[in-house]
């Protein structure tokens, strides 16, 4: 049993790296996912994960399968899409979901064009699905950097983020910080997706961001504890997913996301605010 649970992480360097990378990513992604969910932007993560494709593809086009150029490319394009859609929704009547859809579709189409122009479908698969088992020092360093940045920004701008989610009109009447905070938050989303795409791929990095957050919502009604629960679910999913992928010879990214999905379904069913709790309302109640 001990061997089954800890063996892979003790004996193999690549498993240790994978564990370290995905755990740090979990700590960093999950709180960002919580805020995305609370702002009803859950699908924005998905859109952004597509949007960074042309950047990654451009990096690939000029430098081959190298993490640094692909990351920087993804980052730049992602920020461009985030800024563009954020500005359109800030200064016009168009809501963020529509502008985000427009910008990410443009970006995705360009990305697919670039990939099909040079490179085979195998390379595209690698960009889209990644491989946590092939994390090198550069990728690990990137993930650590992303996590540090995420926490510094979250701690500094916590009050602004909460205010911008809770009552944006009020924030506008007392401060001009709302717009910058919103854009900064979108930057965090892009950073975490880019950090995740080497480990899990663009398609699945958003899963580690959203699934734990969505699952946590069934357990708590407080932002702080939501973040902590989401981080715990994400970390547990990473460990279980890696073990599953090792023992069942499955690809690591989908395995991690499947476990996170299982956590979500379990929470939705039996969580304190889940389906069962709402279906079977206890007749007991307090008098005041």
């Amino acid at each position: 049993m001990f061997e089954y649970l800890f063996g892979p992480f003790l004996h193999y360097g690549f498993m240790q790296r994978a564990l370290l990378g995905s755990l740090i990513l979990s700590i960093s992604c999950a709180p960002v996912g919580v805020f995305l969910m609370l702002r009803r932007m859950s699908l924005t993560g998905d859109a952004m994960s597509h949007a960074i494709l042309p950047g990654a593809a451009l990096g690939f086009l000029f430098f081959g399968l190298e993490i640094i150029p692909m990351t920087i490319g993804g980052l730049l394009i992602g920020l461009l899409v985030a800024l563009g859609s954020g500005l359109v929704s800030r200064f016009t009547v168009q809501k963020e979901d529509a502008s985000m859809a427009a910008f990410y579709l443009i970006s995705l189409a360009i990305g697919v064009l670039i990939v099909s122009w040079r490179g085979s479908s195998v390379d595209l698969m690698h960009v889209l699905f990644g491989s946590v088992l092939a994390l090198n020092d550069a990728a690990l360093g990137l993930i650590v950097g992303v996590a540090l940045t995420t926490y510094i920004v979250l701690l500094l701008f916590w009050r602004g983020l909460v205010a911008e989610c809770l009552d944006p009109l009020f924030l506008r009447s007392v401060s001009r910080i709302g717009g910058p905070v919103h854009l900064l938050f979108l930057v965090l989303v892009v950073l975490n997706l880019v950090g995740g795409f080497q480990a899990l791929g663009t398609l699945l990095s958003v899963g580690l961001m959203m699934l734990p957050a969505a699952g946590a919502r069934f357990w708590s009604n407080d932002v702080r504890s939501l973040c902590l629960i989401a981080v715990a679910i994400a970390m547990a999913s990473s460990v279980c997913g890696l073990l599953l992928s090792y023992h069942a010879s499955m690809p690591s990214g989908p395995a991690i996301i499947c476990i996170a999905g299982a956590f979500y379904l379990f929470s939705a069913l039996v969580g304190r605010r889940g389906v069962l709790a709402n279906l079977f309302v206890s007749g007991r109640h307090k008098t005041a």
Binding site: L166, D167, F170
Partner: peptide, 17 residues
């Protein structure tokens, strides 16, 4: 108000704004 009443906050969090 554009207040999001489903946001997981307590009365004190809202008033403290």
């Amino acid at each position: 108000s554009e207040l999001d009443r489903t946001f997981p906050a307590r009365v004190i969090d809202l008033v403290a704004l």
